[in-house]
Design a protein around this nucleic acid. Structure first.
Lengths: 122, 122
DNA sequence: TGCTGATATGCAGGCGGGTCGATGCTGTTG
DNA sequence: CAACAGCATCGACCCGCCTGCATATCAGCA
């Protein structure tokens, strides 16, 4: 279990609207939302996104959050497994950055109407 | 405490993008997302939304969910307090329906770019 | 008024999750 | 090679939450 969003590239999780959602889809979507539904993790995403290069290492995030380093790593792990963050290790540091369309995809799943095409090639 | 979204009509919870999110905003947004981050509740929203008149009573939701009546009432309560559902009691039945722009508002908070104005009169 | 049906609430059990301290791992540096 | 810094993992504690059973509440009805 992991990378709920990325690993499967958000494979057609039926949106909240339209027909009644399937149980499996509900659990997948809930899984990703669960990763988002935490103050610390929301702030992490926000901090990383607004960082100089759009990336940040653990040591840069510990202080602003006021949480211990293990806890921060824990949250980053959850966000990464949910497909919201990607990790790149350079030297001793681990740089995290947002997965481009990940959050946007979730937003789209919540609001099916009023959205044009979605594209997605495919 | 309740109606996290409705009571305050989503009062300027800073979006996930832009500057680093405030702790208070993070907690408010996380609170609403927590209400969404549950398979049973996602299915409830979906079921209600796709119901005949866009509304449904508890007795209509118990079976499709496979959960006990008290548990369903519990979830409906959480969704209502989060501002995602509104309740109207007609006779012996309690009819629930989606709060129009509630979910859309959440989606907007997640995807700050690509959105025009926001309006909000104020 | 008394009974039945639809919901809400109280209570309790059990599991999952957030947090931290300690520890292990791996590059970097002297 | 030894010492050190940045991260990840482990174990443990504690709190919150999902769920069901039992019960209270309330409206409609005989």
């Amino acid at each position: 279990m992991g990378t709920a969003l990325a690993e499967m590239t958000m494979p057609q999780i039926s949106p909240l609207a339209g027909e009644p959602i399937e149980r499996a889809d509900a659990e997948r979507l809930a899984g990703v939302l669960k990763a988002l539904a935490d103050p610390a993790r929301l702030r992490l995403l926000s901090l990383i996104q607004s960082a100089p290069e759009g990336e940040a290492c653990v040591c840069d995030l510990t202080a602003p959050l006021g949480l211990s380093q293990p806890t921060v790593s824990h949250h980053l792990r959850i966000l990464t497994e949910a497909g919201l963050l990607e990790r790149e290790k350079r030297g001793v540091w681990a740089y995290y950055r947002l997965v481009p369309a990940a959050i946007a995809t979730i937003a789209d799943l919540l609001t099916p109407p009023r959205k044009r095409a979605t594209k997605k090639a495919r």
